[in-house]
Computed example of a mutant assay.
Amino acid sequence: MLALLGIHQHLTAEQKQDIASAAYHATPGAVTAGGFRLAGLPLSDWLVLASIAFVALQASYLIWKWRRDYLRAQTRQQLRDRTQRGGRT
Score class of each variant (00 low, 15 high):
1 M>K: 08
2 L>A: 00
2 L>R: 03
3 A>C: 05
3 A>F: 03
4 L>V: 00
5 L>Y: 03
5 L>N: 06
5 L>V: 00
6 G>C: 04
6 G>W: 03
6 G>P: 05
8 H>D: 08
8 H>A: 06
9 Q>W: 03
11 L>Q: 04
11 L>H: 03
12 T>V: 01
12 T>M: 06
12 T>L: 05
12 T>C: 04
13 A>F: 01
13 A>Q: 09
14 E>M: 03
14 E>D: 05
15 Q>T: 00
16 K>V: 00
17 Q>N: 03
18 D>S: 04
19 I>E: 00
20 A>S: 07
21 S>Q: 11
21 S>M: 08
22 A>W: 09
22 A>Q: 09
23 A>S: 06
24 Y>A: 07
24 Y>M: 10
25 H>S: 04
25 H>E: 06
25 H>C: 02
25 H>I: 01
26 A>F: 01
26 A>P: 02
26 A>Q: 01
26 A>S: 00
27 T>H: 14
29 G>Q: 01
30 A>M: 11
31 V>F: 04
32 T>W: 10
33 A>N: 12
33 A>G: 07
33 A>M: 11
34 G>L: 02
34 G>P: 02
34 G>K: 04
35 G>R: 04
35 G>S: 02
36 F>T: 02
37 R>A: 10
37 R>C: 07
38 L>W: 08
38 L>C: 08
39 A>H: 12
39 A>M: 12
40 G>Q: 12
41 L>R: 12
43 L>N: 05
44 S>F: 10
44 S>D: 13
45 D>L: 14
45 D>K: 15
47 L>Q: 13
48 V>T: 08
48 V>Q: 12
50 A>H: 09
52 I>C: 09
52 I>R: 15
54 F>Q: 15
55 V>N: 07
55 V>R: 11
56 A>G: 04
56 A>T: 03
57 L>D: 06
58 Q>H: 08
58 Q>A: 07
58 Q>S: 08
58 Q>V: 05
58 Q>F: 06
60 S>G: 10
61 Y>G: 07
61 Y>R: 12
62 L>A: 04
62 L>K: 07
62 L>I: 02
64 W>K: 11
65 K>V: 01
67 R>S: 01
68 R>S: 09
68 R>C: 07
68 R>I: 05
69 D>Q: 12
72 R>C: 10
72 R>Y: 11
73 A>R: 15
74 Q>G: 12
74 Q>T: 09
74 Q>E: 14
76 R>D: 14
76 R>W: 14
76 R>F: 13
76 R>G: 14
78 Q>V: 09
79 L>M: 14
80 R>G: 11
80 R>L: 15
83 T>L: 15
83 T>C: 14
84 Q>N: 13
86 G>E: 15
86 G>A: 15
87 G>T: 14
87 G>R: 15
87 G>C: 14
87 G>P: 13
88 R>L: 12
88 R>H: 12
